[in-house]
Each structure stands twice: as structure tokens, then as C-alpha cells.
């Protein structure tokens, strides 16, 4: 009996140790990068800026950021030729970033679409830790946050099985525009005449967080 227990513990312990080492080396490798780095599936430039045609980002991991590299974010923009934006099994972790902009969005993951676009996000995980996102844009839709979607008319936005988490996040919108939409927070969807469906999703925060719209 003891010998069986010994064998079982030995194998289990070895596997755990091996898995831990693989995971650790992967994390260590990724931590060397300060810009958006994509490891599986698609190239970084495709992740950071995509337009024209349908956009699919699947099974991707994006680790970003340091205070010295404030562009460690993921943004997807579309024009009128894009009908579909799909993110599936995507993990985006942003740590230790400081970013100020006067563009429409300033987010760890931002998606800006033209009219008549379907946006689908499934089984994804978006996290921020110790980041500052400030936006002083005068656009009609202005967003600062961990996850921002800005959609024009007749869009279809579906978000399923997704987790968005913030800790020590400071998101501030300061704009002199006295019209339109302003959002500061962890999860923001800004749309016109569209269908928005959000299901089986968790938005959470811990640590000290500040979400502010200054006017």
C-alpha cells in the first residue's frame, strides 16, 4: 500500500512540478516583452491595428505593458468593408501601463466599428493591473477603461462567457464636448440603434480603482 502511494505521489508531484516549470518559463519569456506580444495564431501588428475585411482573432494571448511602454494595448478598428469582428479564446493581460490620449478610446482592449458590423467576443479574459488610462478626446464617443466597444448604427454586439477584471486601475475621461457619450470604467459599450447581448459574463474589480468623468 505504501509503495503504491509513494509511486502515485512521485508521479503526481513530478507532473505538477513539470507543468509549473513550463508555465513559469512561458511567463518569464513573455515578461521580457514590453509591447503587445502575441504568441499564438496571429501577429502582433494584426492584433494591435486591424481594418478592412472580416477580423478574426482566435486562441490568442496578449501580454502587454510597462510604464516605459505605454502603447501596450490592443485595438481593433474597422471601416465600411468590415462586416464581422470575432474574438474567441483571447486572453489580454495589461500591467503597469500609463496611457494618455485624445483619441476616441483608451482601453486595454478597444474595438471601434463602423455601421452594420457584427462584433462577437466569446470565452475571453481581459485583465488590467496597475494601469492609468486617461482620455481627453472631443469625439462624439469617448471611452477610458479596461474594455471599450464603440459601435455605429445597426450593429450587433454579442459578448459571451467572458471575464473582465480590474485592479488598481485609474480611468479618467476629461472632455469639453458637451454632447455624445462618455464612459470611464472597466466595461463600456457605446452604440447607436444596435442590438447588444451580454450573457454569462463577469465584470469584477479588486484593489483601489478610480473611474472618473470630469467636466
Amino acid at each position: 500500500m505504501y509503495i503504491y502511494n509513494f509511486i502515485f505521489i512521485s508521479i503526481f508531484g513530478f507532473n505538477s512540478l513539470y507543468a509549473g516549470n513550463v508555465q513559469e518559463s512561458r511567463e518569464a519569456r513573455l515578461s521580457q516583452y514590453t509591447k503587445v506580444t502575441e504568441v499564438q495564431g496571429v501577429k502582433p501588428e494584426h492584433v494591435t491595428k486591424a481594418s478592412n475585411g472580416n477580423i478574426y482573432i482566435k486562441n490568442a494571448r496578449v501580454y502587454s505593458g510597462s510604464k516605459e511602454s505605454p502603447d501596450g494595448k490592443v485595438s481593433v478598428t474597422t471601416d465600411s468593408n468590415t462586416r464581422k469582428v470575432v474574438l474567441k479564446n483571447v486572453k489580454i493581460y495589461s500591467k503597469n501601463n500609463v496611457s494618455h490620449t485624445n483619441e476616441a478610446t483608451n482601453a486595454v482592449l478597444s474595438i471601434e466599428t463602423s455601421a452594420n458590423t457584427r462584433v462577437s467576443i466569446e470565452n475571453s479574459d481581459i485583465r488590467s493591473q496597475n494601469i492609468e488610462l486617461k482620455n481627453s478626446s472631443n469625439e462624439n464617443k469617448v471611452c477610458a477603461g479596461v474594455f471599450c466597444i464603440q459601435a455605429e448604427k445597426n450593429s450587433n454586439i454579442v459578448i459571451k462567457n467572458t471575464t473582465i477584471t480590474a485592479s488598481s486601475t485609474n480611468a479618467v475621461v476629461s472632455s469639453i464636448q458637451n454632447k455624445g457619450k462618455k464612459c470611464a470604467g472597466v466595461f463600456c459599450v457605446q452604440a447607436d440603434d444596435s442590438d447588444i447581448e451580454i450573457s454569462d459574463t463577469t465584470v469584477s474589480s479588486y484593489g483601489n480603482n478610480n473611474f472618473e468623468i470630469e467636466d
Binding site: C183, A184, D192, S204, F211, I213
Partner: peptide
């Protein structure tokens, strides 16, 4: 004018039809 500050935020304008679920 729509302003929202918080964890979970949805803003929508309607001139034809909008649906939030």
C-alpha cells in the same frame, strides 16, 4: 449627453430601434 462611470456600463442612442439584453 450620456455620462457613465462604473464597473459595467452600456450606453445606447435610439433613432430607429435599440435592444439591450
Amino acid at each position: 449627453i450620456q455620462n457613465e462611470a462604473g464597473l459595467f456600463n452600456i450606453q445606447q442612442s435610439t433613432s430607429v430601434k435599440s435592444v439591450i439584453d
